[in-house]
Amino acid sequence: MGGQFLLRIEDTDKARSTDEHTRVILDGLSWLGLDWDEEPVFQGARLARHQELADRLLAEGKAYMEEGAIRFRLPPGEIAWDDAVHGRISFQGEDIKDFVILRSDRTPIYNFAVVVDDIDMRITHVLRGDDHISNTPKQIALYRALGAALPVFGHVPMINGPDGKKLSKRHGATAVGDYQHMGILPAAMRNFLALLGWSPGGDREIMTQDEMIQLFSFDGIQQKSAIFDMTKLEWMNGQYLSATSAEDLYPLVAPQLERLGVNGNRDAVLKAIVAVKTRSRTTIDVARQVAVRLDAKFVQLDDKAKQAIANDPAGYKASLEASLAALAATEWTASALEQRLRALAEERGVTAGKVFQPIRIALTGGTVSEPVNELLYVVGKEGALKRLEQATTALR
């Protein structure tokens, strides 16, 4: 659609609009990679302009004084617009009470301030939550009273939690920036948010920002409420992690490794990131899995691993002992390790999985990982053999 992206901080409610709240907004947009085209406009700094136009409406008889406040005189008749999402919406002026536009302390209310600011900023499209539909006839009446052309109004569906109720703090993180600290990539978050209430058509879900811009149309906006599904967000984030290079992930993972107390060198960390990123949902997952591969102290048997050992402890131990002996003299490359382990399975008359899984459990504490030959390579010969030996000793 082209155009410009302008940012306005609506800070007329001084009790709620602190510098900290403003910083959360600016940091969140910056993290998402949504860059505004001009300097942000602070609504509170435009008080004189709001007062000027309220006084003009008063002088023209379109508003009146009541208990020190200026109240807008809402004209009778139909107030209608063609909503970009819902189609034609109509109200009757007689059903809407006259409303205050300037309080007795000479500060504007929301419905008046946004109209004045939108006119002065030459806003052409007002897209917002459909909980604002009831505000729109009041604002349209103000546009008309001020002699200004109407923008295109479009009311998008609300975002609900998994329980179908309006998204709130009880559903978890609600500020965009919170998800940065949960290990979500900004590109994944952008993609996920764009699909809340909008679809490009078909089953397409993973899109770059440029692709979303090209594909966007009002026709794709849905009218029903969208559901914020954290599981879906983590799945999408996993897709982006898989497609992101280890080099690009390193700056995000390294600080988390430092907090965990892992002191792996850059090359070792990069090698581990490559191995685990396709099975991770967040950068926190990546860091945890990297930590397991670089430092044995992070190996903790999960319930499935414990059950696998309990099903056949003697077989588990015997397999590890055989693998330990076979691997000691094996060249430490992924291909050579795979060949040796498959040969070992043939020698023992068992499937390759019977050899691979005990090694996986001993090295990671879990039953799911990258291919075992790659896992061994990432952990390194000295570390891997030591873990295998410790695992066999633990069963004695």
Rank of each mutant, 00 (worst) to 15 (best):
E247D: 11
L185Y: 06
R8W: 13
V276P: 09
F298K: 07
I96C: 03
M207K: 08
M230W: 12
K97P: 07
H181M: 14
I206Q: 13
A149L: 05
A308D: 06
R170K: 03
Q357R: 06
R396C: 05
G183T: 01
D163R: 10
M182C: 05
R128Y: 06
A141W: 03
E38K: 15
L195E: 08
A384P: 10
E78G: 01
A45S: 10
T244G: 12
A226E: 07
R279Q: 10
I361D: 01
L344H: 01
F112P: 09
V292S: 01
L57F: 07
G383A: 04
P151M: 03
G68N: 06
S245H: 08
M236I: 13
E66P: 05
I227M: 04
G353L: 04
G33L: 12
G349A: 04
A173F: 10
G177Q: 11
D118E: 10
Y240W: 15
L385F: 08
A254R: 15
D117H: 05
D120Q: 11
P137V: 01
G3M: 10
V176M: 09
A54G: 09
D13E: 06
Q209G: 13
R348D: 03
G315I: 00
A148Q: 03
D312P: 05
L215F: 12
G202F: 09
P151S: 02
P151R: 05
D83I: 01
A173R: 14
T278V: 09
P151D: 00
Q300K: 15
P358L: 01
R23E: 14
L7F: 15
V274K: 14
L7D: 08
E10D: 15
W36A: 07
V355E: 00
T330S: 09
K271R: 13
D267M: 10
G68M: 04
E78F: 03
L341W: 03
H50C: 02
R281A: 05
V378C: 07
L270A: 01
L102S: 08
V379G: 08
E382I: 07
Q307Y: 06
V156Y: 09
K271P: 06
V292G: 03
V24D: 11
Q43G: 02
R387W: 10
S104H: 11
S30G: 11
E211G: 14
E67R: 11
N135M: 00
S104N: 08
F192T: 04
K306A: 11
S280D: 07
H132R: 00
G44M: 06
A272D: 04
G197L: 07
K166F: 09
K232C: 06
Q222D: 00
G353N: 07
Q307T: 10
K297Y: 01
R144F: 05
K277A: 02
G87E: 00
R103T: 05
A329S: 15
S369E: 13
G28P: 12
R279D: 11
Q289A: 00
D312C: 05
L233R: 02
Y240D: 12
E346I: 01
G366D: 10
I309D: 02
A296F: 00
Y110V: 02
A291D: 03
F5Q: 14
L363D: 02
V41W: 03
G177R: 12
D267H: 08
T364W: 00
R348P: 06
E374S: 13
D83E: 03
S30H: 12
S242H: 13
Y316N: 00
L341V: 02
E94H: 07
P108Q: 03
E39N: 04
T351E: 14
E258G: 11
A362T: 02
